[in-house]
Amino acid sequence: MAEKCLLSVEDLKTYFYTKAGVVKAVDGVSFNIREGEALGLAGESGSGKSITCLSILRLVPQPAGRIVSGKIRFQGEDLLDKDNVEMMKLRGKKIAMILQDPLMSLNPVYTIGNQVSEAFKLDGLKGGIGIKQKVVEVLSRVKIPSAERRLKDYPFQFSGGMRQRTAAAIAIARNPSLLIADEPTTSLDVTIQDQFLRLLKEMQKQNHMGLLLITHDLGIVAESCDRVAIMYAGKIVEIGTVRRVYENPTHPYTQALMKALPKLGTRSKKFYQIIGEPPDLSDLPSGCSFHPRCPKQLYICKEKYPPLTPIEGGGYASCWLLNERV
């Protein structure tokens, strides 16, 4: 642990109070990210990854969503103790975010130049040549070709990849210490995906940023992260270094995910499939949420949720199989 802890999330619970009942989107999530470290947060759709991100920025959709309990320590301060103005000053400056859909995350009725310069204006810079130079500079950093001539373009005149890079430019404009990227490559072509991930890594190295990368693509995690946390039904079921988790997955869910990854060089005609559906978050199964789909379930799995247990080789997993007394 050479690096200082940048972000530590402890037992975070974010629930949505809907007419149909309480949806436990994030239900007791804990993890931490050190300075300059990249943590991958992986899981199926609806496992609570995005809500975890939005909770960190305190941007959970109101009024249905609420952070019920937990702590989010960022550079030593609990973000949940901060008022709205303090949070606002933190967003973009210390913690920045890249959203999922590059086609939708830029405002369609303002020029690229306008939207990128907004970030600098928030830093108190007045308009003019100084800002324009900075905008061009940051756009060139994300490899927008001939950026200077494209400042007056609107988002619809940019390709999907360029739009996502512009969103990345806005995110890194103020040199944040933590970058949250919520499935940043999902809607991009595979070739563009790869380019974008490289860019993300490059920016992370240059600025020594912490990175929280949300994805459902385990290949992307392997490529760009140091550690990985696997989420299932609002909880982290396994966390550890990428190498350890990939080579030696412990939780049955992680094992199933690894099995489901298509591998090069094998000739199997069928993909491995996890039986069943992810559970309804407003009506979770008793005990371990994964037990109805688990090939190795025990009696106790229906009764009690397994605690996070340290694993040989680093990291944690929450599964009764790791508990010697069972």
Binding site: M88, A96, L99, M104, N107, Y110, E118
Partner: peptide, 24 residues
């Protein structure tokens, strides 16, 4: 999404509403 983006940039709420929201 662009409203979420506008908020995550650190814009005060009045800019999010009256600049980013209203024009659309």
């Amino acid at each position: 999404e662009y409203i979420k983006m506008a908020r995550s940039k650190g814009n005060p709420e009045y800019i999010v509403i009256w600049k980013h929201g209203l024009k659309n």
